[in-house]
Design a protein around this nucleic acid. Structure first.
Lengths: 295, 295
DNA sequence: TCAATAGTGTCTGTCAGACACTATCGA
DNA sequence: TCGATAGTGTCTGACAGACACTATTGA
């Protein structure tokens, strides 16, 4: 019905919507707390890096975690995410997409917390990570996921992977074994993915954050093939070789140069510039072609 | 660090994690309410159908909405979803995947409510929708999204669509115009999609539910191409012609029979049965092949 | 001239799209 | 025999994969 009509409707108590809302008292039942978590990825020296902060207090004190925080009652979930981004990196516009909402009952030992995670991508040069007002330790971790051959010995195609996060100085290394099993109708689901700490690993991520890292890597790997998402990791101008290294990092495998160029050519525009003072043939700089349409 | 070490750590107040948790008092700041919403799709007579309930009270009294409800403090978000599913349809296992979390501040005029939406797929025969304990009206709506040619007259490729929901008896028809604009790096985002009521439409969906319908249709259309997700809409045994009609409905376009069969053949297994008493050549029944692997 | 990386040409096999054909039932 | 739907054979062009080749710089 049209809004004009609808607003005249009276409910079982004889109230219009306006009257109902004026008298509405939210129930006093317990509500979960709601947080946002940011998985901010960048690329540097052909490595995929993720921004993590070290927790200064319980729970998971001393463990590394995603930057994030509580959603205020007067801000949207997305606004909370951008506020966190600004606090952590001093930038206010990067590519961002919602990743997943984590709702297990005991994922935070303090109390019930549901967390909405976002994946953000940015070129490293655009970012100036800073300790927030709580002066926590912040660091970039190189993220890698590679097949674990013959891990469970069942002779199946690779269904086991090693997911590792390494701090830039190499002092912290966190590793998980990821195993995946498809269920009935062949569609891979969150619940079909199992992560456990790699034997001998002395560090872990806080909460259930390892699951979000794994999910984000899978989504990146998928999307890079059929969307221009990788350009969000590039500076304004870049060479095709640089772009190829980014694709190879995200996909975890080498690509043929000629084929790669044919594939990305419709997405880019040549610029006037070339690399200079290199001891080999100079390479052309390109930029993203904003008129590019998928299909 | 290993858990054994970590649990000995003392924070700034000199407390171990166990001591910290024993004394922890959740803050009394306001929290959003958290709900789950279920978009349950099925297929009947070559039409894609969505289960909706009619709201009996404010807000949006008289409008149609997804079945859903509040997430209890002692149940996971996913458990809440399965509880709703059971209440609405008397089944407890269907294909289900998380769709999106809606976090705008004013999406519910009563109070702050954040909603996690799920998309569920099931063959119609498996379902027995029932009015829940609140005895609300429940109905299947045929969902269609088709291109609106030359809608904004800018001569661009179709970026405008008509999204319509029609009740089975045809008495209720809800229609929206969907317009999409891609932003900078070409990746389509939720915020780039705009929905408005089709001029003259006398009904609307409750809350921001129209956005979730549109998002679910897009996800279905994408996934049907590169996953076996459509089999979740089929009965155990089906003919390839039935399967083709489902694909055509989801994709919104006709497919060539020979090509379709080549594509789906690796996903299915022949059964012993054929259709009987049809006045044309009988057709083979197939079932999903659980050993099918993507790639 | 050489090392190093940029960039191109082209063959191959696979697969989606298009279409014409054959097969098998009831009436 | 005919109408109707099931099911197959095959040509085409597009494109991913593989690889060999040429181009341009500094040293």
């Amino acid at each position: 019905m049209v809004d004009a009509d609808r607003l005249q409707l009276r409910n079982a108590d004889g109230l219009t919507e306006a009257e109902f809302l004026a008298r509405y008292e939210p129930g006093q039942y317990e509500r979960p707390s709601l947080t946002v978590d940011m998985l901010l990825f960048t690329i540097e020296e052909s490595a995929l890096k993720l921004l993590l902060v070290k927790r200064k207090d319980h729970p998971y004190m001393g463990c590394w975690a995603f930057p994030g925080g509580f959603v205020g009652i007067r801000e949207s979930v997305e606004e909370a995410m951008y506020r966190e981004l600004k606090e952590e990196t001093n930038v206010d516009r990067v590519y961002m997409e919602q990743l997943y909402t984590w709702g297990d009952v005991n994922r935070d030992p303090r109390m019930r917390v549901v967390s909405v995670s976002y994946m953000a991508l940015a070129p490293k040069t655009a970012l100036r990570p800073s300790a927030g007002d709580d002066a926590q330790e912040v660091a970039w971790f190189t993220v890698e996921k590679r097949p674990l051959l013959d891990y469970d010995g069942e002779g199946l195609k690779n269904e086991a992977y090693l997911l590792s996060l390494t701090s830039e100085d190499g002092s912290v290394k966190i590793a998980y074994i990821v195993t995946e099993r498809k269920r009935k109708n062949g569609v891979l689901n969150i619940a079909d993915t199992h992560l456990e700490l790699f034997p001998g690993t002395t560090q872990r991520l806080a909460f259930d954050h390892q699951k979000a890292v794994n999910l984000a890597l899978e989504r990146l790997k998928n999307k890079v093939n059929y969307t221009p998402i990788a350009f969000n990791l590039m500076p304004e101008e870049f060479t095709l070789s640089q772009l190829q290294r980014v694709y190879e990092t995200l996909l975890g495998k080498p690509l043929y140069k000629a084929n790669f160029r044919k594939k990305v050519l419709p997405m880019v525009m040549e610029t006037e510039k070339k690399t200079e003072n290199v001891k080999h043939r100079p390479s052309q700089f390109y930029r993203f072609n904003p008129d590019y349409k998928e299909d």
